[in-house]
């Protein structure tokens, strides 16, 4: 048997996996899960109003959660098992709605979201905030992808994009806006994505 077709198939599969069209998959992923993702963003923004915080799942099995709570004087970073009573006590102590946070954590786990936070950015020297969501690449099932996180950003207002769908700094300047050193791509007017080595 000529082994060439088998080799070609393997090489083709590897090449396909490595160069898989991220944009198509991310857009498809978003269209499949946009209900859960959009609801998570809304829920996070509402809860953030009580006290600034971020949630991180620190392990691959989504059993350990790290809470970052920012007060006037300090940022507190706590880590708990999701079933530990200390988690609830801490939320009460910082006046965060317990049920709302638990629902948010459950929503995150259901779509393999590792991190949700609020990120400040500046346009014309004015401060704006976006919601930053990191999803472990496992959720999108790309085994050979080297970059591990798919990042979604929710802007408070529609953004400007170039003809290739890349996020721009400003309508006039036509310069690409980077967030955490990454170029972002359009999903819709308010939502962009990128792939990254880092979740935050």
């Amino acid at each position: 048997m000529n082994p060439r077709p088998a080799y070609l198939m393997v090489i083709g599969w590897v090449a396909l996996s490595c160069s898989f069209c991220t944009s198509t998959n991310m857009t498809r992923y978003y269209s499949q899960h946009h209900g859960a993702l959009d609801s998570m963003e809304r829920s996070y923004k509402q809860l953030y109003g009580f006290s600034p915080f971020s949630v991180l799942y620190t392990d691959r099995s989504f059993q350990q959660v790290s809470l970052e709570i920012v007060t006037d004087s300090l940022k507190y970073i706590y880590e708990f098992g999701t079933q530990e009573p200390r988690l609830k006590d801490t939320l009460i102590r910082y006046h965060l709605p317990v049920e709302g946070i638990y629902s948010l954590m459950e929503a995150m786990r259901s779509i393999h979201c590792t991190w949700i936070s609020n990120l400040d950015y500046y346009v014309d020297d004015k401060k704006n905030s976006l919601v930053y969501i990191s999803i472990h690449a496992r959720a999108l099932r790309f085994p050979l992808k080297s970059k591990k996180y798919y990042i979604l950003t929710y802007f408070p207002q529609p953004q400007y994009y170039d003809s290739e769908g890349r996020l721009l700094d400003h309508r006039q300047r036509r310069r690409l806006r980077k967030i955490n050193g990454e170029i972002f791509h359009r999903i819709n007017d308010r939502v962009c994505y990128t792939v990254s080595d880092l979740f935050r």
Binding site: L56, T58, D59, R60, R200
Partner: peptide, 16 residues
Amino acid sequence: TVLYLNNTNLYKKNHD
């Protein structure tokens, strides 16, 4: 006192 540390591990404990 200044500490020189692995910042990544401070946050991400077991993703990899």
